[in-house]
């Protein structure tokens, strides 16, 4: 196991779900974690869990769609070695039901948020000639879905950022990759589906026969964040139990 000791990792949207687990996993491997969330209580709770497990954490809060707030908050962090762009939002909608405001918010949270987070932290990474950026895509951004086209579009845009940044930042030794989760068992999944629906989904649609766990995604993030993945950049690591096998 490669240690992340001595590294500082910023995780956006780490107040719950996948982001919270990323925080716990990276801290377990020795990283000092900056827990970001718009909800201060949730972020404090994650930080508390990290500290209770013997890890190091601090909390920052800002609205990820507010560029001025991003610049102010993340610009004051000092050295950040690992950025996990995890903050996201999701709502089940057919195209007719997506308002202009919802569309804009979807793009702002995922794309603009990640974009200006990285723009803010990049000068320091360039100066130190290193850094790891891990974006969160989605199987739906790779393959599409029957609903939520605004979400699919935003996640596909994340793939574009990942590949372009990998090329643009490579001369400074900054690596940029993405994880692409499939269906993962989070609080939100439990809220939105009955146990029977979840069983049905796992048995009929996911070859490996179960939903993902947040740890499955966090392990992929930790691998990409470590020096073991130093020759990997511009790539997408899909973690979806075989439900979505595409690309080449």
């Amino acid at each position: 196991m490669t240690s992340l000791a001595g590294k500082t990792a910023l995780i956006t949207g780490a107040g719950r779900g996948l982001g919270r687990q990323h925080g716990l996993t990276l801290a377990e491997r020795g990283a000092s974690v900056i827990v970001h969330d718009i909800a201060g209580d949730a972020a404090e709770e994650t930080a508390g869990m990290i500290r209770k497990a013997g890890g190091e954490a601090r909390v920052v809060g800002c609205d990820i769609t507010d560029v001025a707030a991003i610049k102010e908050t993340f610009g004051a962090l000092g050295t950040v070695d690992i950025v996990v762009n995890n903050a996201g939002t999701h709502e089940a909608r057919l195209i007719e039901a997506i308002s202009a405001a919802e569309f804009k918010n979807m793009m702002d949270v995922h794309v603009k948020g990640a974009f200006f987070t990285v723009q803010t932290l990049l000068p320091d990474m360039k100066e130190r000639r290193g850094g790891k950026i891990i974006n969160t895509a989605s199987a739906w951004g790779q393959c599409g879905w029957h609903t939520d086209s605004h979400y699919c579009g935003a996640k596909a845009a994340i793939l574009g950022l990942t590949k372009a940044w990998a090329k643009e930042f490579a001369p400074w030794g900054i690596r940029v990759n993405a994880v692409s989760p499939g269906v993962v068992m989070t609080e939100m999944t439990r809220l939105n589906r009955t146990d029977e629906e979840i069983r049905d989904l796992a048995e009929k649609h996911i070859p490996i026969g179960r939903l993902g766990l947040p740890e499955d995604i966090s392990n992929a993030v930790a691998y990409l964040a470590s020096s073991e993945a130093d020759f990997i950049t511009g790539q997408v690591l899909p973690v979806n139990g075989g439900e979505f096998i595409v690309g080449i």
């Binding site: 790779q142 596909a156 793939l159 590949k163 990998a166 090329k167 490579a170 499939g182 070859p207 490996i208 179960r210 993902g212 766990l213 499955d216 995604i217 392990n219 992929a220 930790a222 691998y223 073991e228 993945a229 020759f231 990997i232 950049t233 511009g234 790539q235 997408v236 690591l237 899909p238 973690v239 979806n240 139990g241 075989g242 096998i245 595409v246 690309g247 080449i248």
Partner: peptide, 29 residues
């Protein structure tokens, strides 16, 4: 990368390809 894919940490990863290429071959999706 082989060790990652061989271990239980990749328990929900199957059918996938990890290119280890220093930024060459940024393809697929």
């Amino acid at each position: 990368a082989v060790a990652y894919l061989a271990g239980d940490g990749a328990g929900f990863v199957t059918g996938q390809v990890i290119p280890i290429a220093g930024g060459l071959a940024i393809v697929g999706i």
